[in-house]
């Protein structure tokens, strides 16, 4: 029995328009100037950590599920990806852009992108950090015009102690397939 303390972002596909506003908001929220114009003027690269994708007729932003026992943390050779109390974080300073995390993430939610760290540009892993440093909470939640994204703080999720979120997700897939049959 373990308590899932961490919050994660949940999307309601019925409400999502696929307008990419969350992507833009995410990218802007992770620039230094916190504004689109400022970022463009200072030449900072705009990279979003969530991606709106279309599968059949469903449009949907995907981002990191903040796995508790995350594969990306387990394979990171430098300890750049690590698990905090609330979420799975990346320290871009320590990242060597080896891409092992992108290889093992079951959601494909982590990417290698060009970021600016301590004044110099480098390649590093980027992923959703739930905008922990932002006073107003996640930027995508704030920006979504239809309020399709919301921050869920699960009170108590009963799961196997050793199973990671990713494995729970995989088990869910298996259950679905069995149900479909």
């Amino acid at each position: 029995m373990t308590q899932l303390k961490g919050p994660f972002l949940e999307v309601n596909p019925d409400l999502c328009l696929g307008c990419h506003t969350c992507e833009l908001a995410c990218a802007v929220a992770h620039t230094r100037s916190q504004s689109l114009i400022g970022a463009v003027l200072s030449g900072e690269a705009l990279t979003s950590r969530n991606q709106v994708l279309q599968v059949a007729d469903v449009r949907f932003p995907t981002q990191c599920r903040q796995c508790e026992d995350a594969p990306c943390v387990k394979v990171c050779p430098t300890g750049a990806t690590f698990r905090t109390e609330t979420y799975t974080a990346v320290n871009a300073n320590r990242c060597i852009a080896c891409g092992l995390c992108t290889m093992v993430c079951p959601f494909g939610a982590i990417h290698i992108a060009t970021v600016k760290v301590n004044g110099h540009t480098k390649r590093a892993a980027t992923k959703c950090d739930l905008c922990v440093d932002r006073p107003g909470g996640p930027a995508c939640v704030e920006a979504c015009p239809t309020k399709a994204i919301r921050l869920v703080v699960a009170k108590e999720v009963i799961q196997s102690a050793r199973r990671s979120t990713a494995e729970r997700y995989l088990e869910a897939i298996r259950v679905q397939r069995e149900l479909q049959k």
Partner: peptide, 29 residues
């Protein structure tokens, strides 16, 4: 990365990150 490598992990990790995202969307829907 995984305590036990199941067939699902195998199939998922043979997909590129974008396809993995799409797979995630599909299963969620």
């Amino acid at each position: 990365a995984y305590t036990e490598v199941s067939g699902e992990v195998e199939t998922l990790l043979r997909l590129c990150p974008v396809c993995r995202q799409k797979e995630a969307i599909k299963s969620m829907v």
